[in-house]
Amino acid sequence: MSGERPASPPAVVVVDADTPGNVGTIARAMKNFGFEELLLVDPPDLDREGDAYGFAGQAREDVLPNAREVTLEKVVESYHTVGFTATTNEDARKHVRFPFRTPADLADDLAGVGADTALLFGRERIGLTNEELASLDQVCAIPASAEYPVLNLGQAATIALYELRGLAMADSQLPDVSHERADEGEIERFYDRFGETLASVGYPAEKRAKTMRLVRRLVGRAHPTDREITTLHGVLRAIERATRKR
């Protein structure tokens, strides 16, 4: 994801939704992941006392009331378009639903697109038709079980918008999930202490070197934090105290 928020996050287009609840769910997902522009093609009635506003969460305050009704033709004319579908033709001889991107691939792909982009999600029952998809610039599909690849409209949009959040939000707007590894010296002291503890509890001498290698690999993959290493030191101290009391 880029450090700066794009000037114009993609618009989200919902085509011919049957249920107001799904429109509200999509509006809520947009609010979750930084998308603002909701366009509706042949929408159901969005009663402010109904499911759309009930399912929208805080998006009822801005995303949903600011939604605009448009035609598909106007969207195609005004945006670089991406249609989302559950059914793909994984055959280069068929061009309506092939080639296609996954949402994760699409995130990188659209990061370099300078034009305004629209993400289109279709009907609950049949999604976007072949004719509609043929008029769009790209196709995207969410990888799912071949036995049952069809997702609920609201669920599909939520998954896609999560994967594409970097197109709408700067890193500074997202929770910090960075992981700071403990000081290497502290980790090495833990290994030394672990070896001493093995000896103090009578662990077989011939197995200690192999066990220490396994522990080093295990801890190395875990990238422990300072607090985690401090806690492990505390566990070893408790084991040592218990051993001395015997």
Results as ranks from 00 to 15, higher is better:
147 E>N: 07
24 G>K: 04
195 G>S: 07
152 N>P: 01
35 F>H: 05
166 G>F: 02
219 V>I: 14
67 A>H: 10
197 T>D: 00
36 E>M: 06
53 Y>C: 00
132 E>I: 01
192 D>S: 13
72 L>W: 08
204 P>Y: 10
10 P>T: 01
54 G>P: 00
79 Y>G: 06
196 E>R: 13
181 R>A: 14
5 R>D: 04
91 D>L: 09
74 K>V: 01
108 D>T: 03
119 L>S: 07
113 V>W: 00
89 N>K: 13
73 E>N: 14
132 E>L: 06
231 T>D: 06
56 A>G: 01
189 R>F: 10
117 T>L: 12
145 S>K: 12
177 V>A: 13
129 T>V: 07
44 P>S: 05
116 D>N: 15
42 D>T: 09
231 T>Q: 08
225 T>M: 11
51 D>L: 15
4 E>G: 11
144 A>I: 00
203 Y>E: 09
53 Y>S: 07
106 L>E: 07
159 I>Q: 04
48 R>Y: 02
119 L>M: 08
237 R>D: 07
64 L>K: 02
220 G>K: 04
117 T>I: 08
107 A>I: 02
77 E>M: 06
7 A>F: 00
41 V>R: 06
154 G>M: 08
178 S>Q: 09
67 A>T: 01
18 D>A: 13
116 D>H: 10
227 R>S: 14
164 L>G: 07
131 E>R: 15
18 D>R: 15
104 A>H: 14
154 G>C: 05
177 V>F: 05
201 V>A: 04
86 A>I: 00
14 V>I: 15
76 V>P: 03
228 E>S: 12
213 R>N: 03
183 D>V: 02
162 Y>Q: 05
8 S>K: 11
48 R>I: 01
28 R>T: 00
48 R>K: 14
112 G>E: 14
73 E>I: 05
3 G>Q: 14
85 T>E: 10
105 D>A: 15
138 Q>H: 15
71 T>Y: 10
72 L>C: 00
204 P>A: 11
70 V>P: 00
60 R>D: 05
186 E>L: 13
179 H>Q: 12
34 G>C: 10
102 T>V: 10
5 R>Y: 03
83 G>P: 09
220 G>R: 09
75 V>G: 09
66 N>T: 04
31 K>R: 10
239 I>P: 00
95 H>V: 13
125 R>G: 03
165 R>F: 03
4 E>H: 09
40 L>P: 04
77 E>T: 03
100 F>T: 02
158 T>C: 11
141 A>G: 04
170 A>H: 05
51 D>P: 01
51 D>H: 14
66 N>R: 15
175 P>G: 02
180 E>A: 13
68 R>A: 11
84 F>C: 13
201 V>G: 02
150 V>N: 11
46 L>S: 04
215 V>H: 08
129 T>H: 06
100 F>L: 07
46 L>K: 01
